Every structure is written in C-alpha cells, then in structure tokens.
Deep mutational scan, measured.
Amino acid sequence: GTEIELESKNGQREHYTATSEDEARKIIEKAVRRGIKRIELRGASEQLIRDMQEIAKQIGLQYRTDGSL
C-alpha cells in the first residue's frame, strides 16, 4: 500500500495507509480540499507521484516522497 502522512496548517498530523492508488488519490484530494500544509508519500506509484506533483504545483503545497520510484 501507499503510506500517506498529512500535516494540516495547525500542525496536526494524520497517517493513512491506502490499499489502492484510487484510495490514495481520494485521501489526497480530501486533504487538499480541507487545506493541508504538507504531504508525504511512501510507496506511491510513479503515476501517483506525478499526479501529486501536479496538485502541489497548482496549490503551492509542500510534498515529499521517499524517492522509491
């Protein structure tokens, strides 16, 4: 699965493990709508990382991946 670590603007951290790319995408989209400061992805697919970079650029988000592409 993909591990997703979120940090909201007030510094609250949340951790999710998505079993599918679809689920990961839903978690990320929800977080973005809620207003999130930072997202870290571990074990994400190349496609998901590309999507994440696109989203991050659009809304000026900090993100990090573990680089295991």
Rank of each mutant, 00 (worst) to 15 (best):
Q47N: 10
T19F: 12
R50T: 06
G67C: 15
G11I: 01
I4M: 03
T2V: 13
E5L: 14
T19V: 13
T2L: 12
I59P: 02
E23P: 01
T17H: 13
N10M: 08
K30I: 11
G43S: 05
D51P: 00
Y16A: 02
G60C: 15
D51A: 12
Q12P: 04
K57S: 08
K9D: 12
Y16R: 02
E23T: 04
D66C: 15
V32R: 02
Q58L: 12
Y16F: 07
V32D: 00
I49P: 00
I28Y: 02
T65Q: 11
T2E: 01
K30D: 13
L61C: 15
R33M: 12
I27S: 01
G11Q: 02
Q12T: 12
R38C: 10
R34E: 11
R42T: 07
K26P: 01
I55C: 12
Q62Y: 12
E7I: 11
L69E: 08
K26G: 09
Q62P: 04
E3G: 05
T2I: 10
Q58V: 07
G43M: 05
K9V: 12
T65S: 13
V32N: 01
A18Q: 03
D66N: 05
E54N: 08
G35M: 05
H15K: 12
R38A: 07
K37R: 14
I27W: 10
I27E: 01
Y63W: 15
E46Y: 06
K26W: 11
E46C: 15
T65V: 15
S68H: 07
Q47S: 12
Q47T: 09
Q58I: 11
E14F: 14
L69N: 06
R25Q: 02
Q58F: 06
A56E: 03
K37H: 11
R13P: 03
Q12G: 09
T17N: 06
E7F: 13
E54V: 09
V32G: 02
I39F: 05
N10Y: 10
S45P: 05
I27Q: 01
L48K: 00
T17M: 12
T17I: 12
K57T: 10
I59T: 13
M52L: 14
L48N: 01
E54M: 09
R50K: 12
Q47F: 05
A18H: 07
A18G: 05
Y63H: 08
V32I: 14
S68P: 06
D51G: 04
L41G: 00
A31S: 04
G35N: 05
A44T: 02
T19P: 06
E14W: 13
Y63D: 10
N10F: 09
L61W: 10
T65R: 04
E46N: 07
E3D: 08
E46T: 09
E23C: 07
R38F: 14
E23G: 03
E46W: 09
E7P: 01
E29N: 08
E5V: 14
G67F: 04
K30R: 12
E40Q: 14
A18P: 07
K26L: 13
T2K: 01
S68N: 07
S68G: 08
D51S: 09
Y16N: 01
S68C: 15
K37M: 13
A24R: 00
I4P: 00
G11C: 13
E29T: 09
L41S: 00
T19E: 08
E23D: 07
A18Y: 09
L41V: 13
I49A: 06
Q58H: 06
L41D: 00
R33F: 10
R25K: 07
R34L: 14
D22N: 06
A18C: 13
K9M: 13
I4F: 02
S68T: 10
R25H: 04
E14Y: 13
D22Y: 12
K26E: 12
Q53H: 12
A44Y: 03
D51M: 14
R42C: 06
Q53V: 14
R64N: 15
E46M: 12
I36G: 01
I55V: 06
I39C: 03
I28L: 12
L41H: 00
Q53Y: 12
A31V: 07
S45C: 05
T65A: 13
T19R: 14
I28K: 00
K37D: 04
A18F: 15
T65E: 15
I27A: 01
R42S: 06
Q53G: 06
L6V: 14
E14K: 07
R33V: 11
A56Q: 03
E5S: 12
R34Q: 11
A24H: 00
E3I: 10
E54K: 08
T65H: 13
Q12Y: 09
R34K: 10
L6R: 00
Q58D: 07
S45A: 02
I49F: 06
G60S: 05
K9Y: 14
R42K: 08
S45F: 03
G60A: 06
Q47P: 04
L48Y: 01
K37L: 13
Y63T: 11
T17R: 12
Q62F: 13
Q62K: 12
G1R: 13
Q12K: 11
I49W: 08
K26V: 11
S68W: 14
N10G: 09
E14Q: 09
K9W: 14
E54C: 09
E7V: 13
E5D: 11
T65G: 13
I36D: 04
I55Y: 13
K57W: 10
D51V: 15
R64K: 11
Y63L: 15
S8F: 15
E46V: 11
Y63E: 08
A24L: 07
I55M: 10
E3T: 09
R34I: 09
S8T: 14
H15I: 12
Y16E: 01
T65L: 05
Y63C: 15
G67W: 02
Q62R: 13
G1I: 14
D51W: 15
I36Y: 12
G60T: 04
K57Y: 07
S45H: 02
K30C: 13
E29H: 09
Q53M: 14
G67P: 07
Y16S: 01
N10P: 03
H15R: 12
L41Y: 02
I59E: 14
E54S: 08
